[in-house]
Structures are given as structure tokens and as C-alpha cells.
Design a binder for these strands. Structure first.
Lengths: 373, 373
DNA sequence: TTGTACGCGTTATCAA
DNA sequence: TTGATAACGCGTACAA
């Protein structure tokens, strides 16, 4: 039986139309060796103009549009893809102006590196239906590096996965432990500064509106027994408590104006226990608190002062301008990009802690009845 | 000489630490064939428990964390990556609530498909410095499919690239021509409906605030000679002109409240030519127009009516609720995902035109002095 | 400047 | 249930 048949495999085996041309096909058509054809496309080695022409013509004739990225990335060992891992639903993440800015910086930083950003979700809760169907996790995506974004303990698992795979990884706003470069803020210090500002204005009774304390948090007061697994939340809260040790804290379910509004209503509900200052852990929350204050018939800042955090532009808050800590969000993204770039080239990458800038707006003023006015 | 030496290749040949273990290493360690080891990880074929144990143990011992995605994707011919191509800077794109929602739907739809989203920018202007350094374009990224988002003619080039590569492609809000499935809205009809609403209220003098007419547009009035390369802009404008043929149109430089504000100031500047209704091509623009009206001492809707487009929640616009056309943004994303999914499985995918829903808010009312009140 | 030879790490197929 | 074999499509020493 051997030796009998034609070699029509290619035509018969592949169902639709003809097989895509490969670089070998091009080379054959052009009458050169595959390696020469390869070089024409990569430009790694000088090629005579005549040869290049022939190869390019052959490619055009065959409809060959360049090396298959899959094969190329196997060969070179690099895919040109940087994974960005979020904890939340992607849509949620992009609702956050700070994350948006970060992505911006990140994209800037990895672009020149020849890499693109692959959006990834953190591990689905194990066993869930979603986990079955889930897309390419850290495990299955062809990543050259990964940037973990977020704060919660859930990151741990992703972190292990990615470290086990031996690809460079950087964490933004989260504690990765050990040897993983970390990009974050002086959250505690910045929050302390805002709180001190309030104290200097004579405020003695403050309340805190925090970001979620963990991923699946529903809004509510934080008790002594509430475990705070989100680093940002914990650190900023610590900064506030450094100055107002007794301040009650209400945790929102997310960084949204509506959440701030809900928290504000709760906080302003009892006239007897009403604070003269509210420390919100994000500008959006602060905007909601301001609105809640108005709703409760309180003037800002005459009756109650409000501070934010982030330094983003909050639409629709005019004429208010939040007193806030401005964080360099885009710079954080850029730094993360630079860090993975360094690691991909084998250079070490250091952790960076960025500093916030205090910005006084018109939402803070002397405490009512205080001598500070 | 053969038969003499140890087999220490692995230790000596590869510079840093030891080479990563491959599935063959694992197979050898476990005493099974590579194909069996492969099957253990892919689960494509039943394997005896004993064998599985041995392989898994061997993997653990060697620190093997699963098949290399690059090799796997070469072999299977699929990478599990769907490219999402934007025209603008990524950060810009995510500032747009509509795009954010779309991404959301898209992520939903491709997830179950086992795919992730790779963020890609449209081609840099050829010859620019950026183009040199640019990351993985459509040409170099290992995509299984691509979703083109946006509207301008620039998409053409991306489209050619991607079609030449023979990968499935879907276009959202753009004219791809021919055989490329298209996901879009009944922009013209929806806009016409809003305009008709105004006309029914007695308005006769309307102005339009449009989205950018092309990618690099600076804000300004649209003249007879202004070429509009952005489909959405053109279609919505056509819908408005269907009802108000003489309406002047001012094109903003982007879909932002601030842009709407600037446009509104321009439109309300001359008291003699002041319209009684402003048709904005997005809710954000409309919000800005409302603000400009307030600024000019005009009451909304008593002195001037304003319509939006999109049906998003505009923060800070309370107590106004825009009269607008609500578009199913997330559904658009989901449909795009479904379409690429279908094409990846060889099934045909049809274009889909979604329909907007008219929603009356409190920013439109009878024309001043009209009988319609 | 061009060609030869080899392997990157998998997985599909088929036979045992 | 397991194993042998053969690609997948390319890049790159190295030799010519």
C-alpha cells in the first residue's frame, strides 16, 4: 500500500477552501529558502532588494499576510501580551475613574514594549458555574507578564498561579508579599493628612465612609469584628483613625455617588450623633455624602465638612470642589508598565510608593461653633 | 564516545536556574507517554485514576503548572483571544459610559467561549513615531477574532488587515461593507423620533450638538463643506435634519459634559438666533447643554428644550432627567460576542440593528409661546 | 547574502 | 486506557 497514492492530503484533509499559506509556501513560490523568507518579514538580517521583492510578491500572490503570531510566539518564547487582572466584573472596573486612568498609563507604558493588554478576571469563586465556563485565566492565557489590580486577599490565589508559571508580575494597590514589586500609595499618610486638616479646623466628631471591606460586601457599619481584607480600605481607615480614634465607619458597597449618598443618609440620620465632619475614602463617595448632607438640610461646609480621596473630576458636583488627596493614578499605571518591562528584560524592578497631594476645596471649613473660625 | 557521559544537559546548557519543565519531562518522570500526560491536563480522554495521580504528582514535583499556552495555541490553532480595536486612546474609550457598557456585554459573551479580550488601538497614523514603537497591532497579535469599535473611515485599514488574516471580525457602530457582520443602532430613526417629539411640542427653531465628525476634530460649527466620516454622527444628524432641515449643527470634540457646555454657550450666545430646542447627540453633551442654558439664564424646559441620546445615567444632572433615546449598549456588546463566537465555530453571523427606546424626561416641553401648551 | 537543520511544547490521530 | 507518530508554523545558529 505504501507508495501508491498521490499526495493530495492538503486538498482533501482541510475542509473549507484551501489551507492558509505558510511562510514555506511563500518561500517555495519565491524560489528561496524558508529562512530567507522569514528574514524578509522580521528584518533581522539584511536581504538583497531583489530577493525581498520576490518574497513579497510571492506573499501577495498567495495572500500571505505575515508570520502566524501563534507560531512566532512559541518560537520566540514571547507573546507580546500583558495580562491585567481585575477582581471585579470588567464593567465595574471601568466605572472607576481611577482605574481608567491607571489603564491609560499602563497602556502607555507597555505599548512601546510591543505588548498589548489582555483583560482578565480574577478567579471565579471556585465551583461556581461561571468557573466552568470561564475564559482564559492566568493559567491558560499566553502572557508575558501580569499586572494584578486590586486589593483583596483573593489576589493571593491569582498570585500563586502566576508566580508558579514563572512570569513577571506586578501588583497595584495590594500586598503581594515577598519579591513581587508593588505599586501603591501612601494611603494611610494621605488620609491622616486630610483628617488632620479637619482636626485643625476644630472638628472633633468625625465619621468615615469607607470603600468595601471585602469583595462581596454589602453596605453597612463596620464593627470591631469586621475583617477588612481590602488593603486600601484598611490603610485609609487607619489613617483616619490615627486622628479620630473613635470615629464610626460606614462601609459602602462600591465607589459610587449613590453609595456615598446612602452612607450619608445613614450617618446623618440621627441628629444627636451627627458628626461635624465626614471622611470619605473616595471622591465619588464624598460627592454622595455632600448630596446627602444637602438632603438633610445641612450646609457644606458650614454645618458639615466632607473630604474625598483620589482627586478625580466629579461631574455634577459644582459648585463644590472637594477637599481631597490627589493621587497620581496614571503614573501608577505607567510605573507598573515600566516594572513589568524591566522584569521582562531580566532587570530587577523595585516597588514604588506614590505620594498623594493634599488639595483644599470648598467642602471643608471650621467646625460649627468652634473657636477655629 | 557515545555512551560515556551523564545526561546533565539540562543543568549545564540553560543559563539561569533550570529550564522550565515541559510536559515531556512530566511524562518521563511519571513513566508515561507525553500524550498520556497531555490528556491528563486537557481531560479530553478518560484516564485511569492511578495514571492521573502519577502524572499530577510528577508535575507537582517538577513544578509544572500546565501546558504552555503558546505551544497549545499553536497546536490547536486557537489562542482564546479576541481583539477589541478602538480608534482612540484607551483611556478615552473608557471614559465613555456607552463603550464601558458594551465592553461589559462583550466580556460576558466571550467568556463562556473561553476567550479573553485584548485591548488594541487602531493603526497609529502611519509614519508617526508612535507607529514605530507601537505594540501588537492586528497584524502581530495572536487573535482568534476581532471586534472593531468605532465609526470612522480609519477603521477601513484595520479591517483590511484583519480580513486579510482571515480571522472572523465584527464591527460595532461602523460600516464595514460587504460580508462583515455589523452591530449597530437605528440611529437615524431614533434621532428622528426625538426630533419629532420636539416638533410636536411646537418647536420650530432647533440646533444640533453633534459628536465629533472625524477623529481629530476640534469643536466648531458644521458647514456645508464639512465631511462627516463618523457614521454615528452622520446618521444621527440626518435624523435630526429629517425633521428640522434648517437646524444649524455644532460639532463637539468628544462626548463630554464640558464639550456640551462649550457647545451650548456657543449656541445660546446670540439672543436673536437662539433656538427653542437643542438636540444633542449624547446624554453627556445634553447635560452640558442644560448647564449652558442655566448659565445663560434660560430655564429648561420652559425656555429651551434639550434632548440627549444613549440613555445612560448622568451623574449630577438631578433634578433633570433627560428626554433621550435609550440604547441597549450592553446588548450590543453581547451581540458582538455572540457573532464572533458563531463565526469561530464556522456558523454564519448576521448583522444586527438594535432599536432605541424613546424615554421622556423633564428636559423637553412645549415651545415658548406655542399653542402646543 | 542565502540555505540547512533543528527544535520551540503541544496535541490529534490512530493503532495497540 | 495508553502510546507512537506526526505535525502546528516559525526563527535562528551555523555553515556555505
Amino acid at each position: 500500500m505504501p507508495g501508491t497514492g498521490y499526495d493530495q492530503d492538503d486538498m482533501s484533509r482541510h475542509d473549507p477552501g484551501t489551507r492558509r499559506a505558510t511562510i514555506s509556501d511563500v518561500a517555495r513560490e519565491a524560489g528561496v529558502s524558508p529562512s530567507t523568507a522569514s528574514v524578509v518579514f522580521s528584518g533581522k538580517t539584511p536581504v538583497s532588494d531583489a530577493t525581498r521583492r520576490r518574497v513579497l510578491d510571492a506573499a501577495a500572490a498567495l495572500g500571505y499576510t505575515g508570520p502566524d503570531p501563534r507560531a512566532a510566539s512559541l518560537r520566540r518564547g514571547r507573546s507580546g501580551i500583558v495580562g491585567v487582572v481585575f477582581e471585579e466584573h470588567l464593567g465595574q472596573a471601568f466605572l472607576d475613574p481611577v482605574k481608567t486612568l491607571m489603564m491609560d498609563g499602563l497602556a502607555d507604558a507597555v505599548g512601546p514594549l510591543g505588548a498589548g493588554l489582555l483583560l482578565l478576571r480574577d478567579h471565579e469563586p471556585a465551583g461556581s458555574d461561571a468557573a466552568q465556563a470561564a475564559g482564559p485565566s492566568l493559567t491558560t492565557a499566553p502572557l508575558d507578564a501580569a499586572v494584578l489590580i486590586g486589593c483583596s486577599g483573593m489576589l493571593r490565589e491569582s498570585l500563586e498561579t502566576v508566580k508558579a508559571r514563572g512570569i513577571p508580575v506586578v501588583v497595584i494597590e495590594g500586598d503581594a508579599g515577598g519579591d513581587v514589586p508593588r505599586i501603591d500609595l501612601d494611603n494611610r499618610e494621605a488620609q491622616r493628612q486630610l483628617a488632620s486638616h479637619l482636626r485643625a479646623l476644630g472638628h472633633r466628631r468625625a465619621a468615615v465612609v469607607t470603600l468595601p471591606v471585602r469583595v462581596d460586601w454589602e453596605r453597612g457599619w463596620i464593627g470591631d469584628d469586621t475583617a477588612i481584607t481590602v488593603d486600601v480600605t484598611r490603610d485609609r481607615l487607619a489613617g483616619a483613625l490615627d486622628v479620630f480614634p473613635d470615629a464610626p465607619a460606614y462601609a459602602a458597597a462600591g465607589s459610587f455617588i449613590d453609595e456615598g449618598l446612602a452612607a450619608g443618609r445613614e450617618i446623618f440620620a440621627d441628629p444627636d450623633r451627627r458628626p461635624t465632619a465626614v471622611i470619605a475614602q473616595s471622591d465619588l463617595l464624598a460627592a454622595g455624602v455632600v448630596r446627602a448632607a444637602e438632603e438633610a438640610g445641612l450646609r457644606v461646609p458650614e454645618d458639615v465638612s466632607v473630604t474625598g480621596f483620589d482627586g478625580i473630576v466629579v461631574d455634577g458636583l459644582a459648585p463644590y470642589e472637594l477637599t481631597t488627596a490627589v493621587q497620581p493614578a496614571a503614573d501608577k499605571g505607567r510605573a507598573a508598565g515600566a516594572a513589568v518591562a524591566a522584569m521582562m528584560e531580566g532587570r530587577p524592578a523595585a516597588s514604588i510608593r506614590f505620594t498623594c497631594t493634599f488639595r483644599e476645596g470648598n467642602t471643608t471649613g471650621p467646625a460649627p461653633g468652634s473657636a477655629a473660625r
